[in-house]
Simulated scan of single mutants.
Amino acid sequence: MTATTLNFVMVNVLVKYVGNALPIFESAFLRFALGLVFFIPFIGQVRQVDFTRRIVKLSVGRAVFHAFAMVAWFYAMTRIPMAEVTAMNFMNPVYVSLGAVVLFGERIALPRIAALGIAFLGGLVILRPGLREIDPGHVAMIFSALFFAGSYLIANALSKELPAAVVVFLMSAMVPFVLLPFALADWVAPSFREIGLLFFTAFFATAAHYCMTRAFACAPQTVLQPVTFVQLVWATSVGYFLFGEGIDGFVIAGGAMIIAAVSFITWREAWRKRRA
């Protein structure tokens, strides 16, 4: 899980280096298109799938959610510090929990409601509305986390019918088709440097997801969830040393509140399952 956090921070670093050199939709498109090479080994598993109408609809829906989540995230990376992007991204599990309640009628008890409330307070500590100007990058990250939550909820539904590798392959293969029309509308010829940066972005993103899968196979989420907070430490350090970004105590405190709340929810769900 520590390797996962390092890989995700490397993704952030490379996206930061690309910056505004390319239009946002084009950068997101190239990140996924170039990354398809890493999924060639899964083609055999994909060919064995019986693609029902439901699977196709869910896969397309997930690709749309994930595509716009990535675009909002790429935009945020050009506007606000890495540490703030990372800390606000910790809200994904919170939105997933709320989505499960709203969309699937999942029951929610008072301790979980309290934990979600603490997580939202953590988000407010990071944003500090009224105490500073809210940048469009902050708004983009709110929508990014919401779109990612939608993607993860659909992925959860698909994982009950398909192998995990196939679920990831379908998302990675469909997202470029969603982004292509927007990318072509404002296409700028990328340099070899930009292609290289986005290729390695795809590499580190794939490595992060692989490491995460291996971590989940080795230990329960209750053990792994707190480790994700290390990603904020990496992001803050890298942002400071590579990009001259200041160290914001409010971001650290808010991120810690969110991770503590998410870790409590994860621990409580695992405890309930053991009792059941």
Rank of each mutant, 00 (worst) to 15 (best):
F203P: 00
V37K: 14
V71K: 06
P23H: 10
A21T: 11
R275A: 11
L179V: 09
T86V: 09
R53A: 01
F204Y: 14
A115W: 12
S191V: 01
S59Y: 11
T228C: 00
I40R: 09
I113A: 07
I113F: 05
Y152F: 13
A189K: 14
A260S: 14
R193Y: 13
T4V: 06
V101C: 07
A76Y: 12
G244N: 10
C211S: 14
L131M: 11
V175H: 08
A202G: 09
S172A: 12
I195P: 00
L131K: 03
R79L: 12
F148I: 10
N12I: 03
F104I: 01
A260T: 15
I55Q: 05
P41F: 09
M257A: 13
S159V: 00
E133I: 11
G196F: 06
A63M: 06
Y152P: 00
S97I: 08
F200H: 07
L131W: 12
F120W: 14
A276Q: 14
F51L: 10
T236H: 08
A217L: 10
Y240R: 10
Y95W: 15
E84Q: 14
V227Q: 11
R268L: 00
C218D: 12
G123S: 06
L153E: 09
L103S: 01
L180R: 05
I247S: 07
I195M: 08
L127T: 15
T266L: 00
W187Q: 04
V71R: 08
F192W: 13
A67L: 03
F29A: 02
E84A: 09
F169E: 02
Q231N: 02
A115L: 04
V60M: 10
A109K: 13
A72V: 01
P136M: 07
L34K: 11
F38W: 15
T201E: 01
V49A: 02
L242F: 15
Y210T: 04
A189S: 12
V125W: 06
R53P: 01
L121K: 03
V227G: 00
L146I: 13
M70P: 03
A185H: 09
T266E: 03
V227L: 13
R268F: 14
T222V: 03
G44D: 07
F250A: 08
A157S: 12
E194N: 14
G150M: 06
F200L: 12
G246R: 15
V60E: 03
V71Q: 02
S151V: 00
A28L: 02
M91D: 00
S172Q: 15
D186I: 06
M77Y: 07
P181R: 07
F148H: 11
A140L: 04
A21H: 15
H138K: 02
M141K: 02
L30I: 08
M82V: 04
T236Y: 08
